[in-house]
Design a protein around this nucleic acid. Structure first.
Lengths: 221, 221
DNA sequence: TCAAAAGTGTTATGATTACACCCATGA
DNA sequence: TCATGGGTGTAATCATAACACTTTTGA
């Protein structure tokens, strides 16, 4: 597959800010430029598996939220040959990444979503499309949790939504709306080491979600 | 581009029923099987332009609603070689198609969405994905009009929504909800030759829609 | 006791739903 | 005059938004 690649926008959420993982090209015609992590597809693998392999190589992580965006196919998007790329986006838990950081990590850096440099090829287009998709999907499916630690508070969840969607929300209303959906499982634990009233910790329960969707429930935020 | 193709689901709405245009393969290993219209991408064209070219060849139509779905890339989806296909879906006005019917039309037939034969390759997957996308998008963007004649009544529009989404709606509520959005321009004409009270004809006004979206309006049904 | 965030309550407004009903027209 | 769809009215219910308020905790 000499004329098809994959490129992946890896989103992470840390300290209230939404960031993407970019790599700096070490050589070739784009030497010194930042780009989305990407790679070639091998002859026998599913394109989704190629994206998973790439993600594993760069983050050391498995079992990541991963979704295809679309194919990007302007005839001149890659200057050396006609190459079509299939774009993906992934959502990872930053805490996990920090521990297992992949072997390419020396070239990889997190960049705030509102401070993205000029990228190689058409990667700015792909990244912008990713952000649009993420904004859309986070309101239509329970995917935000993939960016949070396993256990989180309602306010952390709200801050994530605020950061992705770009506007402030009302705390009481957010709580009620989310709790009413019934997707969150309250844990028998509370926050620790905080200098204020400890908040209830919750966990997203995929099984509850699947049961509800079977019954016709559809996530909407 | 020997290893990339495009395949397109062409939707049409006629007589209250949602249909797709399928072609019967005349030879090759899929001889006699039905399939989505598709073709190869030439070296210098944008994949979107390849899809437009294909659509023009098969329907004789230009200026069609066309949107990419995603790339389909299972390693064995095409038995003779590793070929990845980029899926598209198009919405056409059946009345226009009937007039200018493309030169391949002898092999092409409309099939009701609920009565699709076994298709070649992974085309059933692509078609099912198309239907899912159409159902989703018709509620989030004003694309339904692309399947109706330029001038239509509110009830025709409602029947289109009912057919695509698969459930019955309440006429008074549908009217009000749609009219309140203010996207429809009432025409100085009414239905003719109907054996009941003639209904007001409307037209979808793209300019109004764009003005509204600039102001933060977002279509939702 | 104060700051900071957790968490509850209340009210106004608007959207959605369900359904009854009248209108216009050709057969 | 009847069937068929066109079109209006209304009341109950539910979701959303705005914001005032109380609670808990560590420093």
């Amino acid at each position: 597959m000499r004329d098809i690649t994959i490129d992946c926008t890896v989103f992470g959420f840390d300290n209230g800010s939404l960031e993407v993982l970019l790599v700096e090209h070490a050589d070739g015609i784009t030497k010194g430029e930042w780009a989305l992590p990407g790679g070639w597809i091998t002859e026998k693998e599913h394109i989704d598996d190629a994206a998973k392999r790439l993600l594993y190589n760069i983050t050391g992580l498995d079992n990541i939220y991963l979704e295809q965006l679309k194919a990007f196919g302007a005839p001149d998007r890659y200057p050396l040959a006609r190459v079509i790329t299939v774009g993906y986006y992934a959502l990872i838990k930053r805490a996990d990444y920090n521990i297992t950081a992949g072997f390419n990590a020396s070239d990889a850096k997190w960049h705030r979503i509102d401070n993205i440099p000029k990228l190689a090829f058409d990667h700015n287009d792909i990244l912008n499309f990713s952000i649009k998709q993420l904004r859309k999907n986070v309101r239509q499916a329970p995917i935000g949790f993939s960016l949070l630690p396993k256990k989180f508070t309602l306010l952390e969840l709200m801050h994530l939504y605020e950061e992705i969607l770009g506007y402030e929300m009302d705390k009481p209303n957010f709580r009620r709306k989310f709790l009413k959906m019934g997707l969150l499982k309250p844990l028998p634990e509370k926050q620790e080491n905080v200098s204020h009233r400890a908040a209830q910790l919750y966990e997203f329960d995929m099984k509850i979600y699947e049961k509800l969707t079977d019954k016709g429930f559809s996530f909407e935020f």
